[in-house]
Simulated assay, not measured.
Amino acid sequence: MASLATQFSTFLFLCPLGIRRLLCSFSLYLKNPSLYRSRTWYFSEPTWKNIDFYTLLIALPFAAFSYLFFFLAFSGHPTHRFAFLQQSQVVSLFWVLLILIIFRENFDIPENFIFVFAGIAFLVDYMMMGQGITGIGGVVYELFGELTLVCAGSCLLLSIRPTSFLAEFLLSSGLVFKGTWALQIGLSLYTDAFALKGCDNILMSLAQQGLTDIVKCELEEDRLRGIALMNLLFIGHAIVVLVASFGLFGLLCRNRNLRCGEASGPLLAELESMTMQMHPLPEFELE
C-alpha cells in the first residue's frame, strides 16, 4: 500500500501541474503568438489562485522527510532500502527548484538557469528511477523514465529557446502523462484488483528478501503477455493525453472566457512593454 500511495501522490501532484501549464501556456500563446515566451511558473493574480504552487512548496519537504524516514527505518535488502534515500534526494531537488522560482519572481535570477536546473533534476530522477527492478516492473519503470527524459529535454531546450511553444507543450503534456502513468503503475504493480493475468504482485515482506522482480509470473507466456499489455496501455495513455491537449487548445481558441487569467511578474511586464513598442497584432483565432 505504501507503493500505491506513493504513485497516487505522484499522480495528484503531476496531473494538476501539467494541466495548469497547458492551460496557461495555451492562453498566453493565443494572446499573441509572436510574443510568446515560456515561463518557469505561470503565476496569477490574486495570490490565492497560486494555491497549487504553495501546496507543493509545503508538501515536498514532508515527502522528502518521509522517504528519509523509510530509509532509516527499513531494514530489508540494501537495493530497496537505498531507493528511499534516492527518492528523498530527488524530491529535495524539485523543492529547491520551487525556491529558485520564488527568487526568480523577486530577484534578478536568469530564467534559463532555472530551466537548466529543472532539466538536471529530471535527469537525476531518470537515473535513479526503478533501480534494481527487473521483469515487468523494470519495463514499466523504463517507460516512466522515457517520459522523464522528455521533460528533461524540454526544460533544457527552453533554457536555450524560451520562445519554443513545442518544447513547452512537450513539457506540460509530459507532466500530465507522467501523472497518469504513475497511477497506472500503482494500480498494475501494487494492487491485487488490477494485477496482470497470471501474475502476482510480490508483497513488501518478500521484497525484503532481496527479490528484484516485483511482479511474479508463473509462466513465460504470462510474463510476455503482461509486458505487451503494459506497452499497449502506455500507447493508450499517450493517445488520451494528446487528444485531451489538442481538445483543450481548440476549446480555448473558441472560448476566451476559459483562458487562464493574466500572468503576473517579470514576464507580464516584459510582454506589455514589447506590445506598447510594436503595432497591435490581431489575436490568433480558429474559425
Rank of each mutant, 00 (worst) to 15 (best):
L30T: 08
S34T: 13
G18M: 12
Y36F: 15
S44H: 12
F43H: 09
F8H: 03
L12E: 01
L30E: 04
L23M: 03
F8Q: 02
G18K: 08
I19L: 15
Y36E: 02
L12P: 05
L23P: 00
S27G: 06
R37H: 13
S25H: 14
C24V: 02
F26M: 09
L17S: 12
R21H: 05
L23A: 05
S34V: 09
S25I: 01
L17K: 05
W41V: 02
F8A: 12
S44R: 15
P33Y: 10
F11I: 08
P16S: 10
L28W: 01
S38T: 12
W41G: 08
F43D: 05
N32F: 04
L30W: 06
T40V: 15
R37D: 00
T10Q: 10
L12C: 14
L22K: 04
F11V: 07
S34F: 04
R20F: 10
L17Q: 11
L17T: 11
L30H: 07
T40G: 06
F8I: 11
R20Y: 11
R39W: 05
L23V: 03
C24T: 09
R21E: 00
F26D: 02
G18R: 07
I19S: 11
S27I: 02
P33K: 15
T10R: 10
C15H: 02
S44V: 10
C24S: 14
Y42A: 11
R37L: 01
Y36M: 06
R39V: 00
L28R: 05
L35P: 12
L12D: 01
F8T: 12
S25N: 09
L35G: 08
R21S: 02
F11E: 14
Y42I: 00
P16Q: 10
Y29Q: 07
T40R: 12
F43P: 01
Y29E: 01
L30N: 07
L30P: 06
Y42N: 14
L35H: 15
L12F: 03
Y42M: 06
L14K: 07
R37Y: 07
C15I: 07
G18V: 07
Y29N: 09
I19Y: 14
S9F: 14
S27M: 06
L22D: 04
I19N: 06
F13V: 14
R39I: 01
F26L: 03
R37S: 11
S25Q: 06
F11N: 13
S9L: 15
P16V: 11
L22T: 05
L23N: 09
S34K: 15
L12H: 07
W41D: 03
F11T: 12
L28D: 14
L17I: 09
L35E: 14
S9M: 15
S27H: 07
L14G: 07
W41L: 04
L35W: 11
T10V: 08
L12S: 06
W41R: 10
S38E: 07
Y29T: 04
L35I: 06
G18Q: 09
S44M: 14
L23E: 01
F26A: 04
T40D: 04
Y42C: 10
R37V: 01
L22A: 10
L35T: 11
R39P: 06
R37E: 13
S34R: 15
N32Q: 13
S44D: 03
Y42E: 15
R39F: 04
F8K: 00
S27Q: 07
R20P: 00
K31V: 00
T40E: 10
R39N: 15
L12W: 04
R37G: 02
F26T: 00
